[in-house]
């Protein structure tokens, strides 16, 4: 069966929407999930391999913690009266090359308030992000590389 993860996710979403486990819904959901997974396979997306599941869970928890903390930080910036802060673009050279790893990194950086993924130069493998509260560029480069890129490299490559 192609893309078991995708088929499983689709089936789960279907069952959540239908809110029942009757054989009819289960069968229909299974048919839709398998059909869409087959169609997705026709797109010839390279298969994703997750090598280190415990590390992925730990990264997920870390990201959730970071999202909560930067939510509070950005809320503070918005609420402060004319606070002085500098924002700007940061260029980060990457070692991560796996497309799924890069996609995960993009989602992590963008869903954390205060940082946003702007551009990725795939030839030089340099990432450009925009940071709302930019104090020191090298700290940001170090943070992104150590906190997110290193685990993603171990998970996907």
């Amino acid at each position: 069966m192609p893309h078991p993860l995708m088929a499983g996710f689709l089936l789960l979403a279907w069952l959540l929407l239908q809110q029942s486990l009757a054989p009819g819904t289960l069968l229909a959901g299974l048919a839709i999930a398998l059909g869409l997974a087959w169609a997705f396979g026709k797109l010839r997306a390279p298969p994703a391999r997750v090598r280190n599941v415990p590390l992925m869970v730990r990264l997920l928890l870390r990201v959730i913690g970071d999202i909560v903390r930067s939510n509070l930080a950005v809320a503070g910036i918005v609420l402060r009266r004319r606070g002085r802060f500098v924002s700007g673009f940061v260029q980060i050279p990457l070692e991560l090359t796996d497309p799924y790893g890069l996609a995960a990194l993009a989602c992590i950086i963008t869903s954390t308030p205060g940082t946003i993924w702007v551009d990725h130069d795939s030839r030089r493998n340099v990432l450009m992000i925009h940071v709302l509260d930019l104090v020191d560029e090298s700290i940001w480069i170090d943070t992104i590389k150590r906190r997110y890129e290193q685990p993603l490299k171990e998970i996907f490559q």
Binding site: N71, S111, P113
Partner: peptide, 12 residues
């Protein structure tokens, strides 16, 4: 700068 703000509503 503004593009960072609505992320608050869509996450927490």
């Amino acid at each position: 700068k503004r593009v960072h703000a609505p992320t608050l509503g869509s996450t927490l």
